[in-house]
Structures are given as structure tokens and as C-alpha cells.
Design a protein around this nucleic acid. Structure first.
Lengths: 343, 343
DNA sequence: GAGGTATGTTTGACCGTTCAAACAGGCCGC
DNA sequence: GCGGCCTGTTTGAACGGTCAAACATACCTC
């Protein structure tokens, strides 16, 4: 691996000064077209690329965005999100730096900032009253979060990008109504991760709007996000005196549990009882007969996150709510209301 | 965000010179214990951390390892692998830089090297006669690969770490035999990704060893890695004149297809017909009644990869074969031969 | 033709660290 | 008491860029 050419090598070859070469990359409008051409051919010939460390040192920006890879559950859409995040970052000449951190331990964040190894962070899997948000905000460190943090008390300064779960579930309910359903159950989780509350709100609003029942017996909560708990929850709904004909689950895994319980009773999802999930994970496309779910627009999310981070330090206070896309499959063949997305 | 302290600030506070502070971090044995103590308290008081760009610039090493996040399928164990990779990297004071690249397009790799943004690459999802390996080898760029590349002709210089698929499948077959199975089918993919051939080899060897049939009719191949194709393949096996009582699938998804076909015929996996998968994805634990699968030891893999990259540029030619761990579940309750792992 | 402005290009200094070489002093042997 | 060696510590000089200001030209205006 021979040593790479430097800005001086290029300058010498093109018969200009160092700075002009630098300008070609950083202020192309300030350089004469003919000079530009000369420099570019020299760049091409030598295969020159500005040294990243040197540039970072002088400009005091690492051009890296830190992302802490979640340790435990690792939501199933993480890999597609990471891909989207990389793409978005590269579109603005940045890269993603991965790191790990113990639960609630911010020292890794601290180190990266102190070393000036990253310019900003992207968070995901925000939980209620997320301590990371507070920590970063207090220190005025740049970040953006995929997912709102739902504060315990009082509004919190929080730059976030999120999917409008309430609206997505609202649309699903409306779709189910158009299929003729009159009793629609909701399967949530026990402890209100904010996202769940949000989706529940969508269900309530839509049911109310269509004058459908939306009282307690139609809402069941799973302890954990597992098929077994989903199945148990479905059992409770199906055992009601007047059981629902459709079930809206807060995750694909829960929905799969529902399908299992239906199969156990000789019922067919989408025919006898409609079922929907959330996140459009591999599970949704893989299961028979295909599970209607909500796809999060990861590309747009990633773009919005990155955009909010690179914007010349103006508005630290971005709030972007995007619309999820309903992926209709046989488990609930609802008409898709041409998914739009709102910025 | 106030400007971070530099080596000079620490030096001034501790009453020593810049270089001594530097030595505390880079050559602790060359500094007097009492001086060391003074410097460390100053470091502590100021929260000093060496600036990464400056260090990289001088030492000509970015301390970053590049990993190209796969665009299309994104194998289901990628997220756990990434986590393990980060951990392993951080253990030696390195970090992982993520990037994307079009299929077969090496320009992203080229840029990162030219910019000196990374010191080395980690590859995954190696395919037969992988072009990335050749490209990197030709340019003497450091890398290590998760997964062997199976050369088209002739041995290839390839630093890899891999799981011994042949041995894992061999163990599974032996376990099935101990459960009394005498006819064991194999579900592979059509085009021999090397890993598949490897596993098939394990099946053949084990069957031969136990004097079981291992001829063509017992081997079926799916076009794609989908449940539908798995189901179709299972159908072919079950329709044989003398159908197998156990089926070894090359992936969890295919195995799930098998389960589906069994359910369709009123058969119970693990009771009427044994089924096993590979990779121990979420699918395996989520499906009823639980799918026996092979867990890849991602932590060890990641450690081995990183270790091979940071070793003071000695042996570029690492080959590490690790043993997979059989996770026994109800679909094939085979006795687990206390999973050992070999380095 | 002097002064002002716009356009391109160049020069010196500096970003924060580490390397290489110089330096100071204590201890040894002769 | 002088040269050699060992242990710590310090000083200058990079590493490869970019910023800020100086420097040329040319073009315009009065």
C-alpha cells in the first residue's frame, strides 16, 4: 500500500498552489473553469482524495455520525434502518460510526465527543422520558432521534423524526370498516412504550369516528412482545361474549400469535377474522396467508434524521412526523389509501 | 459545546511537557510513576481525551474498521453480528465505520482507503469466488472475511473466519440417528453458495458414516430462500415412495416452509417428522413448536476477525474455523453434544 | 488616470498529536 | 574525573489539510 498523494503533489502536477486544489473540492465556484480542469485531471491521474483526518483536524468536524447499536432485542427493522442511514449519510459526504454502550451508560457517548470522533448522534428505540435525550440535550450535543421520547412530565426539547402510528392505525381501522367490520379489537403491550399509546390513540379515535365500540374489553395487553403472549391475548378477545371480527395488533409478532390462535380454532385469518400487524417485518411476508402490516419509511426517516444533523447549526429542534405505508396482504385485504408521506 | 482541552492544557496543569502527556497514553512504561499520577489527575480534572483526528493524522492509522452493510437481503443475523463486531473492535480501541456499496462496485472501498478513513475492512456474506476478495488482495489492503470464499479454480489467498457448517450438520444428522431416524432428507438451495455445499457435504458424510441412504432423491433444492420454496421442496420429499422421517434444511426459512407443509398434511413437526434449520434466527424461536437450529457464534467470529486485523501487520493469512452450536427445540429434540468451539 | 470592486490565486499560520532526536541527570566502571 | 549507559523528560518538526488575509489582475466608474 503505497503512500497516498497529497494536496501538494496534485498542486505540483497541475502547476497551481495547494490552496487552489483545496478550493476545487471546497469552493468550486471560486476557481476558474480552466484551472479547475487542470486540477481535476491531476487529481484523476494521481487518484487523489483529501485525507480525512487532516481535514477533520483543521475543520473540527469528524464528518461522522455516531449510532449506538442496541444491545438486547435489536428490533427487526434495524438492519434496513442502518442501510438507509448509511445511504443518507453518504449522500452528504458523511459516514456512520457504530458503537456500543451499556444500558444507561453514557460514557461511550462522552468519550466519542471528547475525542471529537463524531459530530452528532442518531438515536433509535426511544423510550418514555429517555435519559439519553436529557443527557445529550444538557450538554448541547447534536443528535436526532428516530422515535419520539414521551416525556414523563412537561415537554422536552427533543429533535425527533417519527412515524405517525396513530394515523397509520386510524387508516387501518377505516380500511377494516370498509370491509364491513363492526367490532375491532386492539392488541397492545402492557407498559406503554409511547409508540404503543400513540397507536392505541389512533384506534380509539377511528373507532369513535365510525361509531364503533372502543371500550375496555376490546383492548387487551400482552406482557411481552412474543407469539405466546399474542396468542393468549387473542384468546381473551375470542372468548368475549361478542368477539371482534378484526384484530389490530401493535406488532407483527403479536399478530402472528393471533394467527396461531385462529388456526388452533380452525379459523382462517383474513377470511373468518381479519388480522393486522405493525412494522412489516420478515414475519409478515413469510407467514401464510400474508399479514397486513405497516411499513415504516426507513429511507425517509433516515434522510430526515441526517438532514436535521447537517443543517448549518441552525434549527436544533426538528420534529418530523412521517406517514407509514400500509402493506395490504391476505390477512386483512384492506384497500390501500395510496400512501402519502408528509414532511 | 466548549472546545475540548488539548495535550498542552493537560501538560500545563500537570507541570510537564506535551510529550510526557502523550507518553502517558502511548508508552506508559517510559514515564515515572509519580509523574504519571500527576498527569492522570490533570487528565481526570479536565476530562481530556486525545483528539482522534490529530492522532490519526500523525500515526497514519484511522483506527476504524470498514464494514459494508449488505444492500439486498441482509441476512437475519446481521444485527447481532454487528453488535458483536463493535464490541470486539472497541475491546482494542477501534470502531466500526459503516458504508454502502453497489453490487460489485468497489469505488466506495477505494475512496475510503484513499481518504485513509479506515485501516481495514470486514466482509461478510462471501460468495463463491468473491470479487471483493480478489480486489482487496490485489491492492494489499487489509481485510478479513466472515465466511470463506470458495474459489472457482485454485486456492485463493483469503483471510477468513467461518463456522464449520459441515461439522454442524454432521452433528445434527448424528443426533437424528440417535433419535431413531433412518431416512434423512436434505433441503438445500439451487446454486451452490459455498456454505450450502459445505453443509451438504456434512450431511453426506454423516449419512455415509451411519450407513444411511444419501443418494439424489433425498436431496432437494429450493430456488430461493423463501417459505414457499421450502414448502415445495418438502412436498417433493414427502411424496417419495419411501419418504424421509427427518429433514435437514439449510436455513430457518426453508425449515419453516417444511413445517407449513407438514401442518397442511396434519403432521406435527418433531413428532411425526423431525425438522431442523440453520442460523437460529428469530423465526426458529418464534415458530410452534420451536425449531431446532444451528447458532453461529457471532461473538467469537467477530473477535477472531478483529484480532486478525489488528495483529501488528504480521500474518495476513488467517483461517479460523469455529464450531456452531446446536440449539435443540421441539421440532427435533436431539441431544446436544455440549457445544465446544475450536480455534 | 486615480480609486473602487470583482475575480482568482497564493502565502503564512495553525489544527492537536506523535516521532525523532536532543537533553539532563544519576550511577557505573576504570 | 571522564566516557558510557540507563532512565525520564523536553524540544523542534512534521502529518495533510483549511482558514484568513495578502496579493495580483482586470474591469468599471467618475
Amino acid at each position: 500500500m503505497v503512500s497516498s498523494p497529497t494536496v501538494r503533489d496534485v498542486a505540483a502536477r497541475a502547476g497551481v498552489s495547494r490552496q487552489t486544489v483545496s478550493n476545487v473540492f471546497n469552493a468550486p465556484d471560486r476557481v476558474d473553469p480552466r484551472t479547475m480542469a487542470k486540477v481535476l485531471t491531476a487529481v484523476e491521474a494521481l487518484g487523489y482524495r483529501p485525507n480525512r483526518s487532516a481535514r477533520s483536524l483543521k475543520t473540527r468536524s469528524a464528518e461522522l455520525i455516531g449510532y449506538c447499536v442496541p444491545s438486547r432485542p435489536a428490533g427487526p427493522l434495524m438492519d434496513t434502518f442502518l442501510h438507509a442511514l448509511c445511504n443518507a449519510a453518504e449522500a452528504v459526504n458523511r459516514h456512520v460510526l457504530l458503537f456500543t454502550a451499556g444500558d444507561g451508560d453514557m460514557s461511550a457517548y462522552q468519550n466519542l465527543v471528547a475525542q471529537q470522533a463524531v459530530d452528532a448522534f442518531v438515536l433509535s428505540d426511544a423510550v418514555d422520558d429517555d435519559p439519553r435525550h436529557r443527557w445529550l440535550t444538557e450538554r448541547k450535543i447534536r443528535y436526532a432521534s428516530f422515535g419520539r421520547t414521551w416525556p414523563a412530565h412537561g415537554e422536552q426539547p427533543a429533535p425527533w423524526v417519527d412515524v405517525d402510528g396513530a394515523a397509520a392505525i386510524h387508516d387501518i381501522v377505516t380500511g377494516l370498516v370498509s370491509l364491513g367490520h363492526q367490532r375491532i379489537g386492539f392488541l397492545g403491550w402492557w407498559h406503554g412504550i409511547g409508540a404503543m399509546q400513540d397507536r392505541l390513540r389512533g384506534w380509539r379515535a377511528a373507532c369513535a369516528e365510525h361509531r364503533l365500540p372502543h371500550g375496555d374489553p376490546l383492548v387487551v395487553r400482552a406482557i411481552a412482545d412474543t407469539m405466546a403472549d399474542g396468542r393468549a391475548a387473542a384468546r381473551r378477545l375470542l372468548n368475549l361474549a361478542d368477539p371482534p371480527t378484526a384484530m389490530v395488533a401493535v406488532s407483527d409478532v403479536l399478530a402472528l400469535g393471533v394467527c396461531q390462535e385462529l388456526a388452533g380454532r380452525g379459523l382462517v385469518p383474513g377470511k373468518d377474522v381479519a388480522v393486522t400487524g405493525f412494522d412489516d417485518t420478515m414475519l409478515a411476508s413469510v407467514v401464510e396467508p400474508g399479514l397486513t402490516s405497516v411499513r415504516q419509511p426507513v429511507e425517509r426517516i433516515a434522510e430526515a434524521l441526517v438532514r436535521s444533523l447537517v443543517g448549518g447549526d441552525g434549527h436544533h429542534d426538528v420534529r418530523v412526523l412521517l406517514r407509514g405505508e400500509i402493506v395490504s396482504r391476505a390477512s386483512a385485504p384492506i384497500p390501500t389509501p395510496t400512501a402519502r408521506s408528509v414532511t
